[in-house]
Design a protein around this nucleic acid. Structure first.
Length: 369
RNA sequence: UGGGGCGUCGCCAAGUGGUAAGGCACCGGUUUUUGGUAUCGGCAUUCCUAGGUUCGAAUCCUAGCGCCCCAG
């Protein structure tokens, strides 16, 4: 009996080839496209048509479903509210853990009566007899690895995930697309927000008058300039400040309470500790003792060696907190961004970098020491 | 209306007779699902204005305009 699986198809190269690989492996795939934001690049007519074309070419059924309302509630609202709180959210990671995979599994089960869901993500999953856990591992092609965006997946989900292109190098994926004559074979790599090409404009649309201009100040509180809303900035950012200074200025901190952006020299962006909230332990159980790991604090940054220590529950809040102490200072530790812990290519877990992470962490270090 | 100083790209700033450094900002390219970082490239035929001296001036002279400081 063939195994049936719901295949998420975006109209891109990766999910198209993934669909092909599934059929090669003897799966019976059902193509699904999720419409999450009208007219955005991820679900415009072209993307939908391409997905459908590929499905037809592979002779698999294809369905598209409207998720606009749910997406707004679970991803967009979180995205916009986070910015107002002075955080820099990572909507892609939130989308995967709080929206995409949840909805896909529900759909696979209820609409198609199947247990498994496949996507075009670059990641690998295996089951470890030793630990009794499903393990999430970096893709074979480290350049394309997307495990950073998948840190939120739970055991029950990993058990049912299939990532067909996780074992492949990107050039090979493209080669297959070409050989098969897929219309999407030469599509450029997707990048940036999928639901908007103009995040600033998007935030303005969504938040309107809740975006308020304010001061840009230096580390001593001296006003250096004005900003058009704290939502337009992220920690570590250099461009867009519009302030002429002796040396380049970087965003050091965002202060939502006073509606201020604090800037300073590059040295001031460096930090060695952070606290991670809402940690999801992926491939291992929550460790009782401090462990060494490589921690990645930004999608495009390199993981760096650190000591990771689970923190005590504080008053019933955020029971899954972790203190990360890097061996070397890191640039732009940004509240709201995702921190993912690795050991080699194994994803140990991840979570969201806490507000005022530096200070809290310093204090925690002091008590630890 | 006595004295002194200054006026070079959006900001800061080299350059004091030989044909406009640099930094910041800004713009554009590259860059792996977050507006990050990084990196590469662009960015004053012109030096407050008008005359003059000179083969040649942002640099010298004259006048004007505009700032700043001190003393009134």
């Amino acid at each position: 009996m063939t195994k049936r699986v719901a295949m998420a198809m975006s109209g891109g190269v990766d999910s198209s080839v993934a669909a092909y690989l599934l059929s090669q492996d003897g799966y019976e795939a059902v193509g699904i496209s999720m419409v999450i934001w009208p007219n955005s690049r991820c679900c415009n007519n072209e993307a939908m048509r391409d997905a459908k074309d590929v499905a037809e070419q592979l002779a698999i059924p294809f369905h598209r479903f409207d998720f606009v309302e749910t997406f707004q509630k679970k991803v967009v609202d979180n995205f916009t509210e986070s910015y107002l709180q002075g955080l820099t959210p990572n909507p892609c990671a939130i989308c995967n853990s709080d929206f995409k995979f949840l909805e896909l599994f529900e759909m696979a089960q209820h609409k198609f009566g199947v247990e498994h869901v496949a996507t075009g993500h670059y990641a690998r999953v295996n089951f470890s007899e030793a630990s009794g856990r499903y393990e999430l591992r970096m893709a074979l092609d480290h350049n394309k690895d997307q495990t950073y965006m998948l840190y939120g997946l739970k055991q029950a989900q990993l058990a049912r995930c299939i990532f067909p292109v996780g074992e492949m190098e990107k050039p090979a994926v493209r080669a297959i697309a070409r050989d098969l004559g897929f219309v999407v074979a030469e599509k450029p790599e997707s990048q940036d927000l999928c639901f908007s090409e103009d995040p600033q404009g998007f935030l303005r649309e969504q938040l309107g008058s809740r975006i308020v201009p304010g001061d840009i100040v230096d580390l001593n509180g001296h006003v250096l300039g004005r900003h058009e809303g704290i939502v337009n900035y992220t920690v570590g950012q250099r461009r867009g400040l519009g302030i002429a200074h002796a040396a380049p200025l970087y965003v050091i901190r965002i202060d939502p309470d006073n509606n201020r952006v604090i800037v300073g020299p590059r040295e001031a962006t460096m930090g060695t500790t952070l606290v991670v909230n809402n940690v999801n332990w992926v491939s291992i159980a929550r460790p009782d003792e401090p462990i060494e790991a490589e921690v990645k604090i930004r999608y495009k940054s390199r993981a760096a060696r650190a000591i990771v220590e689970a923190l005590q529950d504080e008053g019933g809040h955020s029971p899954d907190r972790v203190l990360v102490r890097f061996f070397e200072p890191q640039h732009a530790i940004t509240p709201g961004q995702v921190a993912v812990m690795y050991r080699d290519d194994l994803v140990l877990g991840g979570g969201l970098i806490a507000k005022e992470s530096g200070r809290v962490a310093e204090a925690a270090c002091a008590t630890v020491a």
